[in-house]
Design a protein around this nucleic acid. Sequence first.
DNA 1: CATGAATGAGATTTCATTCAT
DNA 2: AATGAATGAAATCTCATTCAT
Lengths: 192, 192, 192, 192
Amino acid sequence: MAQLQKSIDKRTALLKATLQLVNSGGIQGASMAKIAKAASISPATIYLFFSSKQELLNQLYLSVKSSFTQAAFVNYAEDISLEKRFKTIWHQMVHYKLKHPEEASFLSQCDNTPMIDDQTRQEGLLFLAPLFDLWKEGISKGVIKNSSPYLLYAHSIYPMAFLMNINSKDLCTADENILNESFQMAWDSIKA
Amino acid sequence: MAQLQKSIDKRTALLKATLQLVNSGGIQGASMAKIAKAASISPATIYLFFSSKQELLNQLYLSVKSSFTQAAFVNYAEDISLEKRFKTIWHQMVHYKLKHPEEASFLSQCDNTPMIDDQTRQEGLLFLAPLFDLWKEGISKGVIKNSSPYLLYAHSIYPMAFLMNINSKDLCTADENILNESFQMAWDSIKA
Amino acid sequence: MAQLQKSIDKRTALLKATLQLVNSGGIQGASMAKIAKAASISPATIYLFFSSKQELLNQLYLSVKSSFTQAAFVNYAEDISLEKRFKTIWHQMVHYKLKHPEEASFLSQCDNTPMIDDQTRQEGLLFLAPLFDLWKEGISKGVIKNSSPYLLYAHSIYPMAFLMNINSKDLCTADENILNESFQMAWDSIKA
Amino acid sequence: MAQLQKSIDKRTALLKATLQLVNSGGIQGASMAKIAKAASISPATIYLFFSSKQELLNQLYLSVKSSFTQAAFVNYAEDISLEKRFKTIWHQMVHYKLKHPEEASFLSQCDNTPMIDDQTRQEGLLFLAPLFDLWKEGISKGVIKNSSPYLLYAHSIYPMAFLMNINSKDLCTADENILNESFQMAWDSIKA
DNA sequence: CATGAATGAGATTTCATTCAT
DNA sequence: AATGAATGAAATCTCATTCAT
């Protein structure tokens, strides 16, 4: 049991070290040697947990995506209006990204790199199922535009990434007002 | 004069070669050696035009961004309604991205890589001045929401990138209907 | 007693696994980790039986050489003509190599690798004693050329390896005729 | 011209360094780093001449094989008896191997390693064409056994490798007498 | 006795960049 | 101005071996 725990800890330490290194120097900057050193293990040991750098990054992607969506869908009550439910999810997403800038930045960096497999990306999308269901319900109720979930995502969720980006670069501070404005735009774009 | 022309041609050839290589193998895959070979010059010669790989990529970024925005703002008549002017710009942007997938993909890849300097990114935004002016006009006329241009951009232009991404991966075909739906969402999000 | 048997079984499994792995991927391809996995034991356990990879290979060499020569000298009757006795041995050797291509290939691979110690190679030659005795007898009877057994071996036995090699690469099929021709050459080369 | 010469020299130095290292420590022992150091260049520079370690070894194989066969077929007069011509070739081969033990040992090590491609091995065989022609002539004249050249090779040339092996290990000194005996065996095995 | 976990050392290969010409 | 040659440094990954349990 102690052994298993140690193993899990090491895996976690590896994922964490990778996250930080990608954050500070990009995917290129996160070399296996640096990751190993940051996790206080030998480079060779990484390969006991992940068969390649690609797999390490893909696993990290899924891990972060999972953590992100879990935060997004917490406190999810079905007994309130659809708009309010969407608003809750949206704000929880933003809140997560503001509170975990490393995770947010990592996910952004993954958006357009060939290091993340298409299949892994697909798996990552599955975590969004509750949101997709919400939209489906909204469409059937005539509250949401009858469009592909991809389109709804592109216009109501994807803009967050840009917002976080410029926020982290001090071009624009994501204060309460800004966030409310942004949510309003998101909602306006998808509401029927 | 002939000398100067030859110099410009080489620079152009370098930028083009880089664009294609980044497109087919990611930024990592575009090594200086490959770029040199694709442009039919010596690796050493690259450094007569660009002081480093970073600068080459930054210059390419500005070049593509410029080409993109030029296409976006062509046929720009001031005598039609503001919505129609925005619609024209929006569709011309989409049209450019569909017609120049390499450029579109390159810009996407640049969105979150540390290879592009913040300063260069800023310069790139300047090309969007006409759009920002349009929004300012719209705001003063009460047609556009009174928000930061960053927010307006995040919600009405940035979603395109996602759309192009999934289009290129065959998850969703960007046909006429989809584009119209997407524009509607963009407009709904920013209109007052 | 059961313990001892289990120990012997493991040793045998290790040798077998090594043989197969060397056969399919060369000596380089047979890593200790793969050998362990193929023999269903832990890498660390190998070192309870063999002090190093070198020793494992050397032991395997002796084991295969022993098995090969045992097959060669079976049914060895002293009451027939010397040529017929040699012919029997020769054909039994060929037969063994054709029937056990993994063993044959392994021995070939060992011929010129520094992984096999000179001393072990010497020990391997001892298994050929009956053949050397036969030659000594032949020499004294004036039936065999009065040469060093090394020379006799080089010309009458060693060529088999080449034959098996090209047979396994489909350059030449070792059918009945070919084998008879080859034996005739072997005999012609050493007969007085 | 000076540049070209320097390039050729470096290639030659690389081949030579590889030959020596393979000779002293086996193919495994000849790491690219050691080869580079022995040739007094950077590891990266090797790849300007050979695209991989495999190719380096294959090229070396062809180079040595070519040098070996050139030595074998020098002073080749057509106006003497077929047996004498064969004898000349045979002795020149032996002479080369005795004088160039590193080359001889390298060729032996190549016999059974997967690092040498089948195709390269085939190319290597082409160098033996004059010998194969000689045999063909001998067969048609009824002087040589009517067998496949592979068989003739296996019994008259291949034994040399074994001889050189044990010679280099002081098991048996390849003096004049031994060589004459060995040639006699080679000839007896293939003569009609 | 047996092992899963761990690793230091080293393997091959790549790359952005420089330098002599 | 232009370059082919060259490279130091670093990348990913492997392997024979050990050790705490």
